[in-house]
Write a protein that binds this DNA or RNA. Structure first.
Lengths: 144, 144
DNA sequence: CGATATTAGTTACATTTGAAACCATTTTCA
DNA sequence: TGAAAATGGTTTCAAATGTAACTAATATCG
């Protein structure tokens, strides 16, 4: 018999949605960003000059989703795009000044949220938890 | 600086999607079910006679999503619906014979998948992990 | 009792999402 | 070389989803 409330995939899904929505509230209203857009900003902020495909890989997002988020962010002026000379199909992505400002405004709030959550675990417990999470992620990848 | 790959909300989201998609593969093709539909079947299988609203609560799903999943499942004959005499607005949901058969075919595969994943953790580690997960879920709920 | 608020469930509309087809460019390799 | 395959990125179409408004039935409370 399967008890959905105890079922790991279900529990992870609920927790993940809850947290994502919790954080999203800090930037949806204030900056009009969707979760996908925010993720693109986070990746480009961390790795300036990445291509859309690399963003998709790093963010585990669909390349169509990235393409759409990028074009919205170009429209709203948060992102800039320059040719990658080695390959004329690809373009390098950078945060604009405004994009950088938004990035820098969101990051502390996001980290604070994460910090708050992880604070509910003792340091040792937290270390173990993150470690187990990593191992599960690897197992899930193998299994996929 | 924020390193998305190390950021807990992001890691949970990736892991959760990976696992959900992994399991979904066992019933999407074979039975043409979506994740939502499968969740409704799982809840109704576990609690025969629940109402749609109760399903929504137990599955942490939107009531609109439940309503739509239920109507598809009624159309495809996997679900039956009978009046709840105490309240003529609500209807009780049950698996049909076919729905029950599908339920019984999926559950072992789902549990096996979960089991495989959790096997990568030592029993003690697993216990701690699930415990921490529960505490995080509570913290996230408070925070929300 | 009866007006008002609440609840179960559905419908309508706009937005998001995913799969597949699609260019343009680059790579591969006979 | 040059034909076929692969890659970066966009577009298109159908399906999934969220929000708000809606109907019908029940609960609340003066």
């Amino acid at each position: 018999m399967l008890d959905l409330e105890q079922f790991l995939p279900y529990r992870l899904s609920v927790l993940s949605n809850r947290i994502s929505n919790g954080i999203a509230r800090t930037y949806e209203k204030r900056f009009g960003l969707s979760v996908t857009e925010w993720r693109v900003i986070a990746i480009v902020g961390r790795y300036p000059g990445v291509t859309a495909t690399e963003v998709a890989e790093r963010a585990a997002m669909d390349k169509v989703a990235v393409s759409r988020a990028v074009s919205r962010l170009l429209d709203s002026g948060l992102l800039e795009r320059h040719d990658k000379h080695a390959d004329r199909r690809a373009k390098r992505l950078y945060l604009s000044a405004e994009g950088g400002a938004i990035h820098d405004a969101i990051v502390p709030a996001a980290l604070a949220y994460e910090h708050d959550l992880l604070e509910t675990l003792e340091p040792e417990e937290r270390r173990r938890f993150l470690d187990s999470l990593e191992r599960l992620a690897e197992a899930a990848e193998r299994h996929a």
